[in-house]
């Protein structure tokens, strides 16, 4: 029983982090129609950058983390300006492929600057575990959940009330109409990329403070966030927020109970299996906009 509680709590906490990363994808997809497959590498890069700031440069947390966020904003701007803007109005294949090129580039860059394959993040949160009922939870999980939820609320307020947020939603709805209203669409694109990078950075920091800072597994975390996007529906913020915990739960519960029945490591492929199932049964996800089109 306490096993179950443990799985549920860790699963939910992991899930909201996935949601965060997935939201970064959805923002970009909705505003500019670009599928960002470099998500995993953005998570990787920002985790290692945090490591560089906190552990290698020895900055205190309250200086280091804002620096990481500022850097994420610059990175988002640079990505949009130099790789995606020249490709506006190209076929979707090019848009996907350019993010793949980006993925390769970032991974190489991380390899050059931080050649080791594993490092531990300096502790950001108090270390002693918390007892909830009969379950013992690492405090990082709870902090991750709290921070993610706070960010969700902030983001939804931003999109609801701030002028820029409303402009971004309008762009998602109808690009041409927005342009006709005199809103600079390219600036919206640029901002959506900044958002994506910030969210990936926060997600990366949270994930690597729970586990280690690694190479391939971190990229995989970013890729697993795609299952959230697919399950929730590509163009739905709400979908991403709700699907995240579902995937997280499926991962920890499946990892906990199915490992005995199947093979080790089932935990890591559950999101991918969910992707395939969703694709076959309900391709536009739980909350995605259904396009009536037979293909």
């Amino acid at each position: 029983m306490n096993e179950l509680l443990q799985y549920v709590i860790t699963g939910l906490a992991l899930g909201v982090i996935y949601s965060l990363i997935a939201l970064g994808f959805v923002v970009v997809w909705k505003s500019s129609g670009v599928a960002n497959l470099a998500l995993g590498q953005l998570v990787l890069f920002s985790s290692w950058f945090t490591y560089g700031m906190l552990a290698q440069a020895g900055l205190p947390v309250w200086v280091g983390i804002p620096l990481v966020i500022v850097f994420a904003i610059v990175l988002g701007w640079a990505i949009e300006r130099f790789t995606l803007r020249p490709l506006i109005a190209q076929p979707i294949l090019s848009l996907i492929a350019v993010t793949l090129g980006l993925a390769y580039f970032i991974e190489g860059l991380v390899g050059i600057i931080w050649p080791k394959s594993l490092a531990s993040m300096p502790p950001l949160f108090p270390q002693e575990p918390v007892h909830i009922g009969s379950a013992v939870i690492k405090q990082e999980f709870l902090w991750a959940a709290v921070i993610s939820l706070a960010l969700f609320i902030l983001l939804s307020l931003f999109f609801r009330y701030h002028k820029m947020g409303i402009a971004m939603r309008a762009t998602a709805d109808d690009q041409k109409a927005v342009q006709a209203c005199g809103i600079p669409v390219t600036r919206i694109f640029s901002q959506s990329w900044m958002f994506a990078c910030i969210l990936a950075a926060v997600g990366g920091i949270l994930v690597s403070s729970i586990g280690n800072i690694s190479k391939a597994p971190l990229v995989e975390t970013g890729l697993q966030a795609f299952s959230v996007v697919i399950l929730g529906g590509l163009d739905s913020f709400l979908g991403a927020v709700i699907a995240g915990p579902i995937i997280g739960l499926a991962e920890t519960l499946g990892g906990g109970y199915l490992t005995k029945l199947t093979w080790e490591g089932i935990k890591d492929v559950i999101p991918f299996i969910i992707i395939i199932i969703v694709m076959i049964i309900k391709p536009f996800g739980l909350f995605g906009e259904k396009r009536i089109e037979r293909i």
Binding site: P86, L87, V98, G101, Y104, F105, G108, I112, I113
Partner: peptide, 23 residues
Amino acid sequence: LLPGFTSGIAPMLFGLAIILFLI
């Protein structure tokens, strides 16, 4: 040069090549 130069430069160039060709 940074210590990971040998291992990281190849993927970086591949990525760059893909991006430049697409553009």
